[in-house]
């Protein structure tokens, strides 16, 4: 198992108050999954539900508040610094905010080759330049862009530099946080196909966070759906696509906009309604109850646990 989470919770320290020091704010609760070589875990969920936080914790960029993360069976929190550095080289992240994730004072070439210099000491400048040009090319950008600075790139070009930077060190695992959100459909398809090829050829494992259900369907072997820091459904990808079980998953599936103006126009004004719950005051019951058209009184008072239903785990007994 190349990456595993066991009952993982992640928290942010809250700013110190004048009198008291409030408890840390837990934004990811009790997440468990197992990811094998060459496979993809897709993560979807509402905005602010903790996907990016979870992604950072999986790379040990944030500590686990409870539970643990395992990299090929080992807990990074217990690794010696040198072991951790080596293990980290094999685990990369593509950040959600592509331009902000690049150092504004570094050319694309420098951004790309810097990880090489640390992870493969001894590599020559010419070699690393060639590697940078090659990997950039595979994301659909010519070597002309190596000399550019981040502010001279379009949103989608910056995103592809972020992808190239994650790929260049030839990692075993990549956490992809909305990696194709700024790409047009053709380049998006090209990048998705590239990742699929790398999985087949090199056994690359991916955690793929995305709001784009069509892309998740293409990429993922397993899908995890999150709401307010909790997993509400975890299922094999095709089963999830054919019949999502949790009411939130179903609402997502129905809200995917289709490229059909007549159909879309008839859906105007019919978006999901109801208040979104807050992480600062999480509801005692189901996190989706305030928006669920099938909510019963007990949904608002007791939180349903994840339980098996067919091939899936679903946190809704109804």
């Amino acid at each position: 198992m190349i990456l595993e989470a066991r009952n993982l919770s992640v928290a942010y320290p809250l700013p110190r108050g004048l009198i008291s020091r409030p408890a840390p704010l837990t934004v990811v609760h009790d997440v468990s999954f197992r990811l094998e070589r060459g496979k993809t875990l897709g993560i979807v969920g509402e905005s602010g539900c903790g996907k990016s936080t979870l992604g950072r914790a999986l790379l040990h960029l944030l500590p686990a508040a409870k539970g643990e993360v395992l990299w090929a069976g080992e807990n990074p929190a217990q690794m010696a610094p040198e072991t951790l550095r080596k293990a980290r080289a094999k685990r990369q992240i593509i950040f959600q905010d592509p331009i902000a994730a690049l150092d504004p004072r570094m050319t694309v070439l420098k951004s790309l080759t810097r990880p090489l210099a640390t992870f493969e000491p001894g590599i020559t400048r010419a070699e690393s330049r060639d590697r940078a040009a090659e990997v950039l090319q595979r994301t659909g950008l010519s070597a002309d862009y190596l000399a550019r600075y981040p502010h001279e790139l379009s949103g989608g070009q910056a995103q592809r530099v972020g992808i190239a930077r994650a790929l260049i060190a030839r990692p075993e695992v990549i956490i992809c946080d909305e990696p194709v959100s700024a790409l047009d459909v053709s380049i998006q398809a090209q990048v998705v196909n590239l990742l699929l090829d790398l999985q087949e050829d090199l056994g690359l494992a991916l955690v793929f966070i995305s709001h784009n259900l069509a892309v998740v369907r293409q990429m993922a072997d397993e899908v995890m759906v999150m709401c307010l820091g909790r997993v509400v459904e975890q299922a094999p990808a095709e089963a999830f696509h054919l019949s999502p079980q949790h009411p939130y998953s179903q609402a997502l599936r129905q809200a995917v906009p289709e490229p059909d103006p007549l159909a879309e126009r008839s859906r105007r004004g019919k978006a999901l309604q109801g208040e979104l719950p807050s992480v600062h005051a999480p509801p005692p019951g189901c996190v989706f109850a305030s928006r669920c058209d099938r909510a019963r009184p007990e949904c608002r008072t007791t939180r349903p646990e994840l339980a098996p239903r067919g091939a899936a785990l679903v946190a809704c007994p109804y």
Partner: peptide
């Protein structure tokens, strides 16, 4: 681009 499709639909409306 960073919104789930249910919230995206609300914002577009």
């Amino acid at each position: 681009t960073a919104l789930d499709v249910t919230i995206q639909a609300q914002i577009l409306d």
